[in-house]
Nucleic acid binder design. Structure first.
Lengths: 247, 247
DNA sequence: TCTATTTCTCAACATATGTTAGGCTTCGTG
DNA sequence: CACGAAGCCTAACATATGTTGAGAAATAGA
């Protein structure tokens, strides 16, 4: 079971941070059965109401989760980057409560739900790491509630940009002073609870004031501190330092 | 280890729904060490930045979690009712990313973090049940992002009222056509991302139109369907039917 | 390279919700 | 039962954000 599976390595690296894993745990994690699949941009791979019974790991590309109200308004509730193990809920809950869609072309590793559950049962350390992953997800959702509920448009967008900056940096996907953000302004609007027109206004204002520098989908952050301040951003909620020491 | 611990029974009943527990699992769950404490209304028992290393079960009363922006605006991110095992994050994460405060007088059972972790390690079924609990929490947070991000004030408040109605009903704490909601309009505002004044406007409008009937903090729902429709409420996200069959 | 489509930009105007402020009611406490 | 504090209600007015619509720029496909 020690074939080379470079696709899973990034995830393993992250899970190691979550909980202490022994050699058997790591082997079991790398031994997860999976099927690689490449999916084009904009494709739904989970739909609300479905029962997929499989999880998936993003090997490359970006994806997002969203829900649509009865009025047809869309709200993006999270954006995911390579290394994120998403849709663990599908392995554990009976029904999907939201949609998941690719943002860019993605390489995804699909893992059967039963394999996840068996892994959690046989290797409680790994179960704990996955649980912690879910706890951190929940923490990010909480911050999004705050973002959308209590910050004005300007801070809200700045906050989103700060969050991406830090997450991409940690994943080794950001350049020194910026990153490629593969979202349209409409998608940014759906993530912040604003309209595309207003996102445009705010983005241009931030640009004009030198807080960000845009070039197509590239977001440059010439100086972190002023943007951070406008956003009221504090990274505690990302739990980047999370290492659970043994019980 | 079979002393009577009526305080924990409600939680056990809920966890049984989450994952299949054998006799040993249930015994271990009921054997959790805890310390009962009664806390007055409005008291913080977790503060952002702290590291409590203990979880707690609400035996009676209501509590809520919130975060405060740099501008001083408060956003309530969840409200908890008796039977909720809250702050599992404090047992697993290094630092609290939000505040938790009592809404009414509460009887709380505090459980040491180490006991939670040991339980999860020794009884993977229980670990799985707790993980599922966290997954459902996360699902509720997602719905709150949608609520606050994409619904207008009227639907937003109606949605909150519907959510409470169903959750209290399931917990056996609602009367047939309504329930006691121990929140001020200011707190409702903080939960919906509105101002107290506007909450008042909307509440009176819903009342005037016969969608709800208020008497002090009592919320009567004479007819479920119209309110449900105004809210665009669908209970999928609460995962009330959640029963995870064996792997 | 050309064309069709999607995205971005901009402006004029509309409105849901916020702000401020005051009086009224209810509730808790002595 | 009286008092003070907390919560509720109301109104007039302010504004951040939404709406509509249309042209310009970028991107993707042929």
């Amino acid at each position: 079971m020690t074939e080379l599976r470079p696709e899973l390595l990034q995830m393993l690296r992250k899970f190691r941070m979550r909980a202490p894993l022994d050699e058997g745990d790591e082997e079991a994690l790398l031994g997860l059965p999976y099927r690689m699949q490449t999916i084009e941009p904009g494709v739904y791979f989970v739909r609300e109401g479905e029962r997929p019974d499989r999880s998936c790991l993003i090997v490359s590309g970006f994806a997002y989760r969203h829900k649509v109200t009865i009025e047809g308004a869309r709200q993006i509730v999270s954006v995911h980057i390579p290394g994120d193990f998403i849709d663990l809920e599908s392995a554990m809950l009976n029904v999907a409560d939201h949609n998941i869609q690719t943002l860019t072309r993605c390489e995804l590793a699909f893992v059967p739900g039963s394999a996840i559950r068996e892994l959690a049962m046989a290797h409680p350390n790994v179960g704990m790491a996955m649980w912690i992953d879910t706890l951190i997800d929940a923490s990010v959702f909480r911050e999004w509630v705050v973002n959308v509920g209590r910050r004005d448009a300007r801070s809200r967008i700045a906050h989103l940009l700060c969050e991406f900056a830090r997450r991409l940096e940690v994943a080794g996907l950001a350049e020194q002073y910026g990153y490629q953000l593969p979202m349209t302004q409409e998608q940014l609007a759906d993530a912040t609870g604003l309209t595309p027109v207003h996102v445009n206004r705010v983005l241009r204002a931030l640009d004009r004031e030198g807080l960000i520098e845009r070039d197509r989908r590239y977001v440059g952050i010439p100086d972190w501190e002023p943007l951070r301040r406008v956003a009221g951003f504090s990274e505690t909620y990302l739990h980047l330092d999370q290492v659970r020491s043994a019980a």
